[in-house]
Every structure is written in C-alpha cells, then in structure tokens.
Amino acid sequence: MTIDITKFNSCRILVVGDLMIDEYVWGTVDRISPEAPVQIVSVDREDYTLGGAGNVVNNLAALGAEVSVAGVIGTGTDGDRVLEKVELLNADTAGIIREPKRPTTRKTRIIAANQHVLRIDRETGRDISKTTFNALKSFVSRKIPETDVVLISDYGKGLITIPFIRYILNTAKKYGKLTIADPKGLDFSKYSGVSLLTPNQKEAGLASGIEIKDKTGIIKAGNKLLKTTGIKNLLITCGQNGMILFEQGHEPHTIKAEARQVFDVSGAGDTVLSVFGLSIASGFLFKEAAALANTAAGIVVGKLGTATVSQKELLSALKRFS
C-alpha cells in the first residue's frame, strides 16, 4: 500500500468525548499482607496520562493533526491534569467545560513487575448539566464548519447523550462532514446517522444479540447491526484476528492482523478511532483507512499502558507489508 502519511499534518479533527486521566502506579511485590490474603505493592513511581477521548486526542497529536476537543471535566486536581496535558498537545481546549461538583474520570492502574494487578475507577455516569450542554453545543456549532472529520468517543460517562449526539450529527450533516463514533452500550441505534461505527467484537455481539464464536458469527452480527440501527458503515475490531469492515452494498472486507506479542490492549480502540478518522480526513478510502488503523493498533498493543503511535512507527510498519 502506497500511503502518504504526511497528509496527516494538514488535517483538522474535532474530538467529542469522555475525557479521563489514567493514573499508573508502578511498584514491586515481595510479600503478602498479614491483614488479608492480598499482595503488598511497594510503590516506586506514579505517572499520569490522558485516557478515554483524551487518548484519542493524544494519538491524533502524535500523528501531526490539528485537534479541537469538546468534553467535560471537574474542577479539581484531576481536571487540572487533563486540561494541562491537552494544552501541551497544542490542541484547542475552548470546548473543554469544567462542571462544578462533577468528578473528572480517573482510572488508577496498579502495575507490579510489569503485571497489571488492579484497577480503581473514580467516575460518574450522570448526564451533563443543561448549562454544560448549551456551552458544548455552541462550541461544536462553531468548530464543525472548519473541521475535516468529527470523532465521537463515547465511554458512557454522561456526555454523549442522545440529544447531544443528534445535535452533533445534524450539524455535521449540514456542513457535509463525516462522523465516526466509538460506541458504548447495547443500543447502537443511538448512533444512527454516523458515517462509521467502530465497536469491538464483544460490543458488536452484545448489541446485535448474536453470540460470536467465529468469523461467521461476526459477519452475522455486523449485517444485523447494519439492518437494524440505521448505521451505513461498521468496522468491527477483532483483536488478534484483525478487523472486518462492513459497507452497505458491499461484501464484508477482512483486514488481518500481524502476529505480534501483546503487552496491553488499553487504548487500542482509541488508536483505531484516531487513525481511521485521520486517514479519512486525508482522503483515503474506507478500506485503506481500516488497514492503516489495523496496523497502528498492532503497534500500540505491543506497548504497556495507553500508548500512541508516531508517523515514523506507522510508516516503518507499512513498509514491512509493501
């Protein structure tokens, strides 16, 4: 595949989604607690990275895109961390709304001897306030006309409500902009009208009500979702088995994954959303975009923690296949 990745540098992407902070607590284990049959982790260091939609922004910035962000955070320290890290990526943060009394989602992962031993979540799933909703609508309406592609990163934390997603999609349609969403939940009709939906295999199986055991099951689930949800295009990610792209009027297209050692799948879906959206913004076909996203996901799962892929890494991987 001959791909000019330098086109990424001129792309303008709007990311709308649930912003999070990922905390990594690194340590060692050499004994069991006398209080309970659990390991004692002696902490060596703590790191903070962007998670959720923030990881989508991080991936896009690492690949050279111009990014604008719409989301909600709290007013505490974790919110400060999110805002600071997004600003360091030179992204437009005018659409990040700070909502009083709302916690910023934080996922704490305890890592000992390079093993993920525990995760602690601090979050809320309640809907955003009316004031926040109106502020986000105002920002989205200003940004979409000057954006190439809109990416929706839904983690079910109360931001991507049905009224908000309808507003986003209607505005995008008005200006002829493509929308790509990474879904959450069982009812994919919520995303009716998006240009492409990117569920993983488990999500597709649950949403379709079809138990997926093999490729035949994935194809049945994908075809059912196309028929019942109002979605025209679907990219189902299948982990080590690659991806399957469904486009209405076409046979399902399989993209095989390269065999590689997997250290951590955290954030792989964010990478798929980022690279697919960036590829579409660069003028590539859906099949080409899926192949690029598949390659990028293969790179990040070989890294520990929520990671990004650079243009250099992606170009190097593509050369191995050419």
Rank of each mutant, 00 (worst) to 15 (best):
Gln115Cys: 02
Ala281Gln: 02
Glu87Ala: 14
Ile21Lys: 01
Leu285Ser: 15
Arg106Phe: 06
Thr93Ala: 13
Ile96Cys: 08
Lys312Gly: 08
Leu314Pro: 11
Val272Glu: 00
Ile244Leu: 10
Ser310Trp: 02
Ser310Glu: 11
Trp26Gly: 03
Cys11Ala: 13
Ala207Ile: 01
Thr216Cys: 09
Lys215Trp: 03
Lys101Asp: 15
Ile111Tyr: 03
Lys130Phe: 05
Val301Lys: 05
Ile111Asn: 04
Ser68Val: 00
Gln240Phe: 00
Lys174Gly: 07
Leu169Cys: 07
Thr179Val: 12
Thr28Val: 07
Asp270Val: 09
Ala221Tyr: 00
Leu118Cys: 04
Lys319Phe: 07
Ala61Gln: 09
Gln248Ile: 10
Thr198Met: 03
Arg106Lys: 14
Ser316Asn: 14
Asn170Cys: 04
Ile73Tyr: 04
Ile120Lys: 00
Ser195Gln: 07
Glu247Pro: 01
Leu235Asn: 02
Ile162Gln: 14
Lys287Ile: 01
Ala61Asp: 09
Glu288Ile: 01
Leu197Asn: 12
Glu46Gly: 02
Ile73Phe: 01
Val41Tyr: 06
Gly185Ala: 13
Ser141Leu: 00
Ser192Cys: 06
Arg12Ile: 08
Asp127Arg: 05
Ile168Val: 15
Ala62Met: 04
Val69Gln: 12
Val82Ala: 03
Leu285His: 14
Asn170Gly: 12
Gly176Trp: 07
Glu146Ile: 11
Ile96Gly: 08
Ser141Gln: 12
Lys101Leu: 10
His253Lys: 11
Ser141Trp: 00
Ala207Val: 01
Phe286Thr: 09
Val82Gln: 01
Val25Gly: 08
Ile180Phe: 02
Asn58Met: 06
Ala317Leu: 08
